[in-house]
């Protein structure tokens, strides 16, 4: 499905990671060079100055208070913001060397390589099997459906729970199972990058733990960017964390990036005062 893209451009060299923090020794190549200068909704400036290069085979977490633009930035990585009226972005998002906002780029093709898991589990009102087969059918997959579906469900740690009821409705599953089904659906098409927008906020701690374990397994194969409100979650799973904050000085509410560093450094020794305050506030 994305063979043409992967052969077309080898991974760009990793640029300097934001705010001058030392890059960790094991940093891989940048999969997605995201350099947002401004994101507008109509005349409203929603986000400014967010430079978040996403490294291949890592988990990148976006944290920060509500309204700080972290979801907006995440959604601009596979052009899901195109559906918001008045959306306009300045800056660039380079995916494997290609600007996904360049004229002539088909946002549908972008989304086929860059999957998304949403805050609310959103399985389709059809069988578990058909939910996972959905993306394969879209891509006119010609191979063995049963095999790919089993692989995806195993990948999402759901196989053992549903293998005997693949024909029952995806909506009949529990919330945690539904979310893992959505993850299975997303990884069935073997996307390059998986965007997760608060994937655990509707789940209980046990289901959350399962999804987190799953993310750590998935990063062997995929690259993940996750928005989370849960700081402990960012610490548990993310290799790198981007902290966003809200600027209300100009009268509006504009989100911007404070710092983006390896997770351990960001939490252990935050460079910026806002980061320190935010982390401390949540732990006290």
């Amino acid at each position: 499905m994305n063979a043409d893209m992967s052969t077309q451009a080898s991974l760009a060299a990793a640029p300097e990671v934001a705010t001058g923090a030392p890059a960790p020794a094991a940093a891989g190549p940048v999969l997605m060079d995201c350099r947002v200068e401004h994101i507008f909704y109509g005349s409203f400036l929603a986000v400014r100055n967010a430079e978040v290069p996403i490294i291949a085979n890592e988990i990148t977490a976006f944290i920060g208070p509500s309204g700080c633009g972290k979801s907006t930035v995440l959604r601009s990585l596979n052009r899901m913001n195109d559906f918001v009226p008045g959306f306009r972005m300045e800056g660039h998002v380079h995916y494997r060397g290609q600007d996904i906002y360049a004229p002539g780029v088909d946002p549908v093709a972008v989304r086929r390589s860059i999957g998304m898991v949403f805050q609310q589990p959103n399985p389709f009102a059809t069988s578990i099997y058909n939910n996972v087969a959905f993306g394969l059918k879209l891509n006119r997959f010609k191979g063995d459906y049963a095999e790919r579906i089993e692989k995806a469900l195993r990948g999402a740690a759901l196989w053992d729970e549903v293998k005997d009821k693949l024909n029952s409705s995806g909506l009949a599953l529990s919330g945690g199972q539904q979310q893992r089904l959505c993850i299975a659906r997303a990884i069935a098409v073997e996307p390059d990058l998986l965007l997760m927008d608060e994937p655990c906020s509707a789940l209980d701690p046990i289901a959350t733990r399962r999804v987190e374990e799953l993310m750590l397994e998935l990063k062997q194969t995929y690259t993940i960017a996750i928005v989370t409100h849960n700081l402990q979650q960012a610490q548990r799973v993310a290799d790198r964390t981007a902290f966003f904050f809200v600027d209300t000085s100009a009268g509006g509410r504009t989100g911007y990036l404070i710092e983006y560093r390896p997770t351990q450094e960001l939490f252990g020794d935050p460079k910026e005062e806002q980061t320190r305050a935010y982390i401390r506030g949540d732990f006290s």
């Binding site: 559906f83 972008v110 609310q120 879209l138 891509n139």
Partner: peptide, 27 residues
Amino acid sequence: VPEKMRMAALGMGATRMETTLRVVVPT
């Protein structure tokens, strides 16, 4: 049909018509 189902399909890289015919209409 809930908006989240449309988003799910669009997020998988479905076109608007694919989303409509494969997800919204069956639902």
